[in-house]
């Protein structure tokens, strides 16, 4: 709030000078925010109203059923999503953060290959996810022989969100003032000590936010996993990284295309669960950010 109040009062002061333009601009800004917000609110209220009758313990205690929407649940999809996302985080975050540290702290930016890597990472972030699905199917599932398993899904989703993790982590690392590094080095710390004790802790808030955004993208993906053998009917929770699995977006997609109305209600309820998991992840990011935030 403190941050917000300063520019606002500045705007109020200035607006006395040329009120019409200022007001128009402000209305345009609020309208932009409003559009995003109205759509989100509409979607949220729709799934809540539609799914309300089925948001109960059956949803996470029961396994899917094609025979009766009243006893059907999404337990295997919920555990599948948790498995896939946790493993994606474990595989992607260390790799992505390490790559970001290299690119920010060690890489010589005057060398052409480092510039090529940079450009490539930015391009990779824009590739449609289904392409990663094809890549995962050809290389991870078939060439590596990992099959249609949790680990294949996680590795593919990991590749999909790795560019986002790298870009966000680099921004966060770059935001640490150079004076902190210089101070640390001047006191005799090695470069690694400077990075691990000063730069990284200081950039955790930004890295966490970026990583959660990346994982949030991964959790909602269905297209690449359709290529990777996420099944639409499974009555077992994954029992290892090589197990068959399904995830919530696929379960939702499957229920929506059923003919019986009861399954459409279930789909909405499952969307609410997916949103809750997302919200939970975002809250963790906010908590991390607040806990580690430093001001210089």
């Amino acid at each position: 709030m403190a941050v917000l109040s300063t520019p606002r009062s500045a705007v109020q002061l200035a607006s006395k000078g040329r009120p019409v333009r200022e007001h128009l601009f402000r209305i345009a800004l609020i309208a932009s925010l409003g559009i995003a917000f109205v759509f989100l609110a509409a979607l949220l209220s729709y799934v809540l109203v539609e799914g309300w009758p089925r948001i109960d313990s059956r949803l996470w205690e029961n396994m899917p059923s094609v025979r009766n929407p009243d006893i059907a649940g999404a337990q295997s999809a919920i555990t599948g999503t948790l498995w896939v996302i946790s493993l994606t985080a474990v595989l992607t975050l260390p790799t992505g953060i390490a790559a970001a540290i290299y690119l920010e702290e060690y890489a010589d930016k005057t060398r052409w290959w480092n510039r090529v890597i940079e450009l490539n990472i930015q391009n990779l972030a824009a590739i449609p996810s289904i392409v990663y699905g094809i890549l995962g199917l050809g290389i991870i599932a078939r060439t590596f022989g990992l099959g249609f398993s949790v680990i294949t899904a996680s590795m593919t989703l990991g590749l999909l969100v790795l560019p986002i993790v790298i870009i966000a982590s680099r921004e966060a690392i770059r935001a640490v003032p150079p004076s902190i590094r210089e101070g640390s080095l001047a006191l005799g710390a090695t470069q690694w000590q400077t990075i691990s004790r000063q730069v990284l802790p200081a950039s955790i808030p930004g890295i966490a936010t970026g990583s959660i955004l990346a994982l949030s993208r991964a959790i909602g993906e269905a297209a690449p996993l359709l290529m990777l053998g996420a099944v639409s009917f499974i009555r077992f929770n994954p029992d290892g990284v090589f197990a068959s699995y399904t995830v919530l977006p696929i379960q939702i997609f499957n229920w929506i295309s059923q003919s019986r109305e009861g399954f459409h209600v279930l789909a909405s309820a499952a969307i609410v669960i997916l949103l809750l998991i997302l919200l939970l992840m975002n809250s963790v990011a906010i908590w991390l950010r607040n806990r580690y935030q430093k001001r210089w």
Binding site: W60, E61, M63, Q75, T79, L82, W83, S86, L87, V90, L91, I151, F236, N237, D239, G240, V241
Partner: peptide
């Protein structure tokens, strides 16, 4: 991935503690 498995197994068994259907 071996390390990952171990970490996730711990995390999941904690997360699913309430439901008993998990093998």
């Amino acid at each position: 991935s071996a390390a990952a498995t171990a970490a996730i197994v711990v995390a999941l068994s904690a997360a699913c503690g309430g439901t008993n259907t998990t093998p």
